[in-house]
Design a protein around this nucleic acid. Structure first.
Lengths: 143, 143
DNA sequence: CTTATTGTAATCGATATCATTACAACACAA
DNA sequence: TTGTGTTGTAATGATATCGATTACAATAAG
């Protein structure tokens, strides 16, 4: 069980926009060629990033730009933009209310799992687009 | 995007086995009536917990028992028993190798996300079946 | 008006999950 | 030995989600 491609794809998009901002217009076709997914997927994801206020997309003329500096965009922003804000795990809707375990498990286990999720979100906040771009440049320079 | 029912169901099973160990034989039918899923799901999950060494299941005569004390079983054990040990997110298989972002994103972003996953697993280790049972008893006593 | 692009809907195939039925294997008791 | 209750497992079906793809109206600029 895994999360979908969406966070990695959205992150890839933001990195490409920033990395090539002075060289290429960031159209869905251009971005699709780096990520290697269908341009429609790029447009949908770009739509989510736009709704979250992370990018501006030029209708008609084409191209996307970041609305903030890459130091100010974290994986948390990206995750919130492309994933539903929901529990980490599914819970059985109707456990047996006559069983002490059944009638309390959602509350008790759900609380613990929500804490885990909050830690995960806090971790996401520690990583910025600028960090990732710096790591990429470092790797490029290394070899 | 969420993880499946499996961790909550498996946890529910372990809690019921322990909670009712002196009152009822923990058959798949009995457990199914508390969790409210099909007994076959219980048997499959019980099979995973058995493979992970967390329970003994009596073939033929029926019933399951914990192999360790509930203080020594954590959500990490349960998670490992029922979920694949894989990346948290899918990555695009073939990003463009001619693009500096495309050829480095898996390495760079994958590393950060793996750290997040390790933190999540560490969080799971902090919660035991005994903790959860204590919380349930506390809730029961409260009202 | 032409051109390139975005935004969006619709459809398709693939995959995963859980529910359910069915049945052989098994352990124990009468 | 036979009967009963149970486990282990295979097979099937319904449902949901995801990503790929096609299609096309709306948009902006020359």
């Amino acid at each position: 069980m895994q999360f979908s491609f969406r966070l990695p794809v959205a992150t890839h998009i933001l990195l490409c926009i920033e990395r090539f901002k002075d060289e290429y217009k960031a159209t869905s076709t251009f971005l699709a060629s780096s990520v290697n997914v269908n341009p429609v997927i790029i447009r949908k994801t770009l739509g989510q990033l736009k709704a979250a206020g992370l990018v501006d997309v030029a209708a008609g003329v084409g191209g996307a730009k970041l609305t903030k500096s890459p130091e100010d965009i974290t994986l948390w922003d990206v995750f919130q933009a492309v994933e539903e804000d929901e529990d980490l795990f599914h819970f059985q809707e109707n456990p047996n209310p006559k069983c002490p375990v059944g009638r309390n498990i959602h509350g008790v286990l759900g609380d613990r799992l929500e804490e885990v999720r909050q830690h995960m979100l806090a971790d996401f906040k520690k990583v910025t687009i600028a960090d990732l771009l710096a790591s990429i440049e470092a790797k490029e320079a290394a070899e």
